[in-house]
Design a protein around this nucleic acid. Sequence first.
DNA 1: CTGTGTGCAAACATTTTGCAAGCAG
DNA 2: CTGCTTGCAAAATGTTTGCACACAG
Lengths: 154, 154
Amino acid sequence: MKKNFEEMSYDELLTEFKNIIKANGLKFTSQREAILRTLYDNPQHFTSENLYMLVKQRHPDLTIGIATVYRTLALLEENSLVSSISLGIQGKKFEIANKPHHDHLICKECGKIVEFGNEKIESLQHQIAKENGFELTDHLMQLYGVCSECKKET
Amino acid sequence: MKKNFEEMSYDELLTEFKNIIKANGLKFTSQREAILRTLYDNPQHFTSENLYMLVKQRHPDLTIGIATVYRTLALLEENSLVSSISLGIQGKKFEIANKPHHDHLICKECGKIVEFGNEKIESLQHQIAKENGFELTDHLMQLYGVCSECKKET
DNA sequence: CTGTGTGCAAACATTTTGCAAGCAG
DNA sequence: CTGCTTGCAAAATGTTTGCACACAG
């Protein structure tokens, strides 16, 4: 049974993380907390390197290595507290999994991003996966086009 | 104006490739042809390494290096003769772009890729774009999940 | 105390680049 | 001939691993 972490506050996420740690006989460390905290406060998509640098910047007192970032992201991802997607050229990116699901409509001219959710598409995606014997866990959908303002200009 | 290479025969693709080469002041070499030919004959998804080994196997007389494969794939992709998708775990994969439009269903465990096309989703995407004042030009849709075989193993 | 977690550096895996020689045009 | 292309090896990236010390429980 998969947990649903949508809309959770930081404290709730932290509690979940501690439970996961305890359940696996692991230990709660300041590095692990700093990573979760940084992911929570910056709900963008991170590369491992981005996250590593931001954690160091926000916690100058804490020593942390890139290896710990990789190890912690793997742990968080295994337990669905963060999700990762691979974005074309830009490599693998991570984000904390407490946001409601949405996809993106992106203007090729000005870069404007509109978030949208569409249940019909979601259900068709599940149907397609099912027809092919897949258990759907995730998807990436980005629509590219030209927004109304940029259309005017041309 | 973007070219449409759908359903092209090998000879047509080769002519396109030669035109691209000429137009850019480049040169037509046996390595470049061997790569295009191998991509055409094996319309699966290749990693660079896969393709490199298959080209060597199919053209034992030809000397070719991995660097040439990377360079040629980049050239082909810039000119839309091949398209690439990037997969979390398994790296970047390429396929020749003479197939009708389709999207991908990807197994997170073993990297297996299933192609699918769904007109309902395509039309919903256009509708979403329209509702937001966008003119849709393009999209990226990848569904991630676990395939039936990998499900068995767990 | 015990055993997990950590940083560091080395090891890996993948992709890119510099270079001198090869060859298409 | 000219200069683009190639293979090779070295370099650059991105990620993982081995190890000895640190520290949570």
